[in-house]
């Protein structure tokens, strides 16, 4: 039985459920860009982790405090210098990497302060996104809900791009799950998947 099956949790979102399967009870988890704390709250309740989140927006910090999670207001772009090497078992960046400028810095920092990093992002290579481009428009979909003029996203990359990014930097892809909406994709990930979740590590 895999860890994912063992967890048997349902946090209402497939990427959240995958992440819940990758963390173990009692682990220390840091959720970067934790939004209203929903994922952390789910991981605490379903998996019994010790969790902290970082969030920059006032309204989201307030929502996370209402959710009863340990939220720390701060700027991810400034790095994670306040935290020590290996301070967390898992550092999570859920649907946020594409909205950050310092891509390489944050991935390196995640793997410094965490033993493993968990990254999820919308796949720009998804077939519907490719179709939109072929039709002459920037993609707008469930996983990319914004218009080009109001999108928080600043990095546009595919599953294939992220695989190359990891390979070139010696980052180990320990596991990868790809989804189209709520359905897991088992082949042609970069074409059929709208969202990807990676479990990353460093060779020790």
């Amino acid at each position: 039985m895999t860890e994912t099956e063992l967890a048997k949790v349902a946090l209402g979102r497939p990427d959240f459920d995958v992440i819940a399967g990758w963390v173990q009870p009692g682990e220390r988890v840091l959720d970067l860009g934790c939004d209203d704390g929903s994922l952390l709250r789910g991981l605490i309740e379903a998996r019994g982790v010790l969790g902290w989140g970082i969030e920059i927006e006032d309204g989201k910090v307030l929502a996370a405090i209402r959710n009863g999670v340990n939220v720390i207001q701060g700027n991810l772009e400034a790095g994670l210098a306040d935290f020590e090497d290996g301070a967390f078992h898992h550092v999570i960046l859920s649907q946020t990497l594409q909205a950050m400028r310092h891509t390489e810095t944050i991935v390196n920092e995640m793997l410094r302060v965490g033993r493993e990093a968990v990254v999820s992002f919308p796949n720009f290579g998804y077939w519907k996104h490719r179709q939109a481009i072929l039709n002459g428009h920037m993609p707008v979909s469930e996983s990319l809900p914004h218009q080009w003029y109001n999108s928080p996203n600043v990095r546009f990359f595919t599953i294939a791009d992220f695989d190359d990014f990891c390979a070139e930097r010696g980052i180990l892809v320990r596991e990868r799950k790809v989804f189209d909406g709520g359905r897991e994709i088992t082949e042609e990930h970069n074409f059929l998947g709208s969202t990807a979740v990676y479990r990353l590590g460093r060779a020790r």
């Binding site: 010790l50 902290w52 340990n70 720390i72 306040d82 935290f83 301070a87």
Partner: peptide
Amino acid sequence: SREIVDALVHNGQDVAYAEIK
């Protein structure tokens, strides 16, 4: 204030932190 927060996180203690504009 962050010094207090970081010490608590390091210790695995519960803390929420807000920096008010």
